[in-house]
Design a protein around this nucleic acid. Structure first.
Length: 121
RNA sequence: GUGGCUGGCUAGACAGUCGCUGCGGAUUUUUUAUUCGCGGAGGAAAGUCCGGACUUUAUAGAGCAGAGUGCCAGGUAACGCCUGGGGGGCGAAAGCCUACGGAAAGUGCAGCAGAAAAUAAACCGCCAAUCAGUUUUUAACUGAUCGGUAAGGGUGAAAUGGUGCGGUAAGAGCGCACCGCGUUGGUGGUAACAUUCAACGGCAUGGUAAACCCCACUUGAAGCAAGACCAAAUAGGGUUCCGGUAGGGCAGCUUGUCUGACCCUCGAGACGUGGCUCGCGUUGGAACCGGGUAGGUCGCUUGAGCGAUUUGGUGACGAAUUGCCUAGAUGAAUGACUGUCCCCGACAGAAUCCGGCUUAUCGGCUAGCCCAAAUA
């Protein structure tokens, strides 16, 4: 049996403005209280992740770091169930008042909604 | 031993699993990938408030404006920082705070209260004179007028030194003594400044300069998205070369039915479509150069660096010897999960690099100092 890789290398990330505007141009959206997820099917054999953590929503650098790390970790562990999509996750204003366990809850909720929507389409 | 003051250190620990990132080694022909080893946020990384290094602009020179600093001396690459000292304030003390130059150059400002807030001033009070009235008639009292008076009252943040004696109609530095203040000199100190030293001055100069201003000193500007280099595709620019058994114009001199991409017409050729031809569509072709976008590389971490010892200095700090290399990302790493333990974990995340300041912060450890009150 092949060992499944849970690595998170550079090919799994959106790297420049072109990649991002590719998603923003023509994406479908999934919301909850804390996040907005934009997704668009890509031409590769793996999903890719981009994060947009607005300074406006999360004022302090350590808060932004925490959110980024939590999202990357979830993406890394779920990468084989996500299909070939480019994903961009944005934070919403309400995230500022949430603590770590709340953020994890909303993160799981977000990925659930995304998978449901993929199955439907 | 409660409490207080000052300085320094620290910022949960350990194990396992899955990741991220830099460097080095091995395997792989290289890119790459795999694997092993080592390293991977802070005391404030923060605010961006000062000062430098570095880079570009013009080797940054003079003047003005603007901005900043503001007791003295020292430290430093430099500073608005630090150290030591002086003045002032707070505290019982250790100690802490201090924007602390100039108001006898000029201008401005001062709510309320108060009579008056600046060439001082007369509301009440006190006193004299004049006039009128009353009475107990060399006088006293009451009222008015005109003066004197800063002792007393009340206002205020602030009212032109304080206390006492003399003096006076009442008073007043009007005079004197002491205190305070100022000026000059002496003495001590590098200086700020001090002075239980001497002489002189009746005291002259209200406050505000984080109001304008004056004086002294400092200061060119922009910043690592600085800046340097490489550079795909596409579209422009420049140079050179090439292509026609075409026609015409024009030019040249060697006057040839020559030469010429200088101009016009044609379109041979090339490319695409296509098995091929015709046709249709596009178009001069090639090489080189220059600017330059995406993108990439460098700048990018060895430095006013850190530790130890010796040594100079009260100290900040300096000198010598010796050892060490301690994050370098770029859609942006330093994390997640599980377990065990404890005092149950605060503020908070590098982005060119240093020196400071300021602000945030659950705690823990440690050194030195203080002892008023309270407790014992």
């Amino acid at each position: 049996m092949n060992r499944i890789s849970f690595q998170f290398q550079r090919e799994l990330r959106l790297l420049n403005a072109k990649d991002f505007s590719f998603v923003f141009d023509k994406a479908f959206k999934v919301h909850n209280k804390a996040f907005t997820l934009l997704a668009r099917k890509n031409q590769l054999s793996n999903p890719r992740l981009g994060l947009v953590i607005a300074k406006k929503n999360l004022k302090h650098a350590h808060q932004r770091n925490r959110v980024k790390r939590l999202l990357r970790e979830a993406f890394r562990l779920n990468q084989h169930e996500l299909g070939c999509y480019d994903l961009v996750i944005l934070t919403r204003r309400d995230i500022a008042v949430l603590d770590k366990t709340d953020i994890i809850r909303f993160r799981e909720d977000l990925f659930d909604r995304f998978r449901k929507k993929c199955r439907k389409s």
